[in-house]
Amino acid sequence: MWLTSKIKQILMVMKPGVVTLDYPNERPPVPANLRGQPVFDHQKCIGCGGCSDHCPARCILVRDVCQELRVMLYDGSRCTYCGRCADICPEKAITMSNSFEIACDQKEDITTRMELFMMTCQRCGRCYEMEKTNAIDRINLKGFRYDNLEQRALIRKTSETFDPALLKESDNYQRPSDKE
């Protein structure tokens, strides 16, 4: 029994032979609908912040530095490439590209930063009627937002009108702690 098993095992190994790919010299084709690095189109983006609100990794940050200027920052070092932002985006400004070889030394190399000039709505400051009909996909964080870009922290606090005090407060953001 032992010997027949061993013969069968030799055949099992011989038949497929060597299957290891000679990567990176030989590159297998990338599937067409791979969820790779997300690419942001600043021409299309309206700065609604839907992607930021629905990012499971909370790695898309929104900061209103003044009434007219909104900074959007995508931190690729924490991204899980789920493609949720691309699903949510009402303007299709985010596409999941097929680039996946994105290991790098500097965090900045996989960071996307967009500075958007925002018109002010006379009625409410910042308002978006999201095209989303799904009740559980609505935007929770409406109005002006003050995430801390240095610490890459999403802060769940918004205001209807631009509030310099909140902006200042978010500068000093620290994780709650009972450390001295």
Binding site: D53, H54, P56, T80, C82, R84, N134, I136, N140
Partner: peptide, 14 residues
């Protein structure tokens, strides 16, 4: 505390 219903499946997956 942080994310909404439809994001949980992606974290649950992990």
């Amino acid at each position: 505390t942080q994310i909404s219903y439809n994001e949980v499946p992606f974290i649950a997956e992990r």
